[in-house]
Amino acid sequence: MRTFNTRAAALAAAAATAVAVLSPAPAAADVPPGQRGRVVDAKALAGTAALPSASANRLVSYTSQGVNGRRITVSGTVSLPQGAPPRGGWPVISWAHGTTGTADVCAPSASVPGGPVDDYVSITSAYLDRWVARGYAVVQTDYEGLGTEGGHPYMNGESAANTVVDLVHAARRLDHRIGRDWFAVGHSQGGQAALATAAARQRTGQLNLKGAVAAAPGGYDLHLTVDYIRQQLPGAQYALAFLPTLITGAEAADPSIVPEELLTDEAIATLLKAGRTECTARHREIALTFPLDKVFRPGADLAPLTAYLRSQDPVDFDLRVPTQVVQGTADVLVSKATTDLLVDALRDGGEIDYKVYQGVDHRGVLDSSFEDSFTFVEKLRGDRHPGGTR
């Protein structure tokens, strides 16, 4: 997500009193389980998100449960392996993508060569193609509000976990050859989503969540973003690159957070506009030249924004299934120091396999970690570990 130094990570650890992100919505607001994971539409998929080694790639829309327990429609993709499925059906990789933005044009399923998120989706598709080539059905959610109605509640763990699991339900309804055993795998923003999925409460017995893989997971230090920018600390320019996504995502999760009340007129015209209409690569370009002292409106009450970001911190997750975390030492977006502290905290509440790759950066960790992650997942498939059911 951002470059924060070791001192900042230590501050994050000391300050991590996050409210548990996976607290269920009031029962009256919950979408009935039978309505979740229903296929709304399905058609052939083209573009960057289609996996070359798949026998079929489908663009789907399906029902899920969003923030505040409301029923939502989500878009995503389903890619099937070649050949006949094994007994019990193909195992599933449910992929949670990294930060692309909150505007509808940033939905990975809509990515095309040269498009606004192609620089990222082309890399993740190459990674996921290795899974489908080895016999895994691969499903990829766009998350709530990316390419579909409503805003995208960026880094909201509960919403992300719901969309990750409900796409597996939808895929099994779409093709009966897809099995019950599945794994949550994600990168960056999606690393937090994979951890949230691994910690989420059980919902049904129709699926068997065997484990999770989180690559360079974000979220641990989000609540430091505001202070980093205001105090112009080292790494503040990286933090600013994510502010358009953070603030529009917080607004989507909690409408009482109004970006126009927090940002200067200059920031509204530049940063906020970009957050609502453009994707992460463009946000990075803008952040390089935007003055840090012109971001927040003088006297603005930033406490609700900071509190929301803190509430999505994965530090207090109690993981219900074995989880692998992979991290590169040359990552300047999610630092190894930050991930070290997150893993130490997660080990108190779950089974963690932590792999570190020397000289590997934020996106490079996907290719570098594939064989270790494949071995980790294959072992869990072979074990009679009960996993979790959702």
Rank of each mutant, 00 (worst) to 15 (best):
L240A: 08
P52R: 14
P32W: 11
I247V: 11
A96P: 02
G47E: 09
P322W: 00
P322V: 01
R58E: 06
S335Q: 12
G157Y: 07
D301S: 11
G249T: 04
G179F: 05
T197G: 10
G150K: 01
L195S: 09
S373D: 05
D316F: 11
L240Y: 07
L45Y: 06
L309F: 15
Y220F: 13
L146H: 03
A16L: 06
G387D: 01
L167H: 01
P259I: 10
A126S: 14
C106E: 05
G191C: 13
G218F: 02
S79P: 10
P33Q: 09
A49M: 13
H187K: 10
A14M: 14
L233R: 15
V332S: 15
D227Y: 09
L11E: 14
G179Y: 02
Q35I: 06
P81G: 14
L271C: 05
D221S: 13
Q324P: 02
A250N: 06
A96H: 00
F290T: 09
A200Y: 02
V315P: 03
L195P: 04
R177S: 13
T17R: 13
K273H: 11
L195R: 02
A103H: 03
P81R: 08
T3Q: 07
T48E: 08
Q189V: 08
H187T: 07
R284E: 11
G364S: 10
V112P: 12
P314Y: 09
A300L: 09
A267K: 03
P386M: 07
I247M: 07
